[in-house]
Design a protein around this nucleic acid. Structure first.
Lengths: 152, 152
DNA sequence: ACTGAAAGACGTCGAAT
DNA sequence: ATTCGACGTCTTTCAGT
């Protein structure tokens, strides 16, 4: 992966529907090499997929909560079970295994506080082996980038 | 926005390059209405943009850190200054104003621990008015969805 | 609001350098 | 590794229901 590939990636992170023609124009190259480079990076899974980014609030998901969770027990089996259960919850848009006082950090996206209460009680409450849960509420979204920073 | 629009959005969240033809086939409609509906949702900014999703690790960004920050002072001006400074940092891929013991939560993406040390000392350290910073390190990425959950 | 068709632009790939 | 050119497919639009 060279500087040209990186330029292409920067453009595609900005606009995933940019035509090869337009990319070619911007990086002063012709159609085919740009096409080949993109296809190569798709094959190598450097480019994993293309997605549409939607407006959260227009879709009635106004509340984001970061939910810090501890497990009661830390065996491999229960950890695996937890991972499976959590992954299945569509409100949980991200989940990380973290250092510090808690075991996992969940990013939860719901309509409002009532929906979050319902999530904690009925969805998270159904997941086995959860010890404690500490919620941090998002009051404002300052920055949201979907881009991986690419070195020069 | 009706059920058909929602179906289209679900498909485009899964694959932003899906052709109108393919979408039309899947929702049992012809080309034109699908095309018009998508364009309408783009105009209304329900669909904000299309992006390529890249592989973080293949681009040498192996470490994610959640950085909890407090401000020394909470006036409107310094808050605004902080927001500007933080937004300019490319390593900070997300930033939220949060409830609880800290003021802001940053999601930081760097190459490794050494790069994170550099980030805290030289980048975050340059930002005015930061009181304290508490880092939580990501050991494992369990789930990463770029999709907004869409109600039925 | 949807169907079907038609025109033009783009993705895609082979041949050549 | 890049350019050119040709083909098939998709986007985009329009007349008709």
């Amino acid at each position: 992966m060279d500087q040209i590939d990186k330029k292409i990636l920067r453009l595609l992170q900005e606009d995933g529907n940019m035509t090869t023609k337009e990319i070619a124009k911007r990086i002063h190259l012709s159609n085919t090499p740009v096409y080949e480079r993109i296809k190569k990076m798709e094959r190598e899974r450097i480019i994993k997929k293309y997605v549409a980014i939607l407006d959260r609030e227009k879709l009635d998901r106004d509340l984001i909560v970061f939910c810090n969770v501890t497990l009661k027990e830390h065996s491999k089996i229960v950890g695996h079970q937890f991972v499976n259960d959590i992954t299945a919850l569509e409100e949980v848009v991200e989940c990380y295994n973290i250092s510090g006082d808690y075991d996992f950090l969940l990013k939860v996206m719901v309509k409002d506080m009532k929906a979050y209460q319902d999530f904690v009680l009925n969805r998270l409450g159904e997941v086995e082996n959860i010890g404690s849960a500490h919620s941090t509420f998002v009051m404002g979204e300052i920055k949201q980038s979907y881009q991986i920073p690419i070195d020069r």
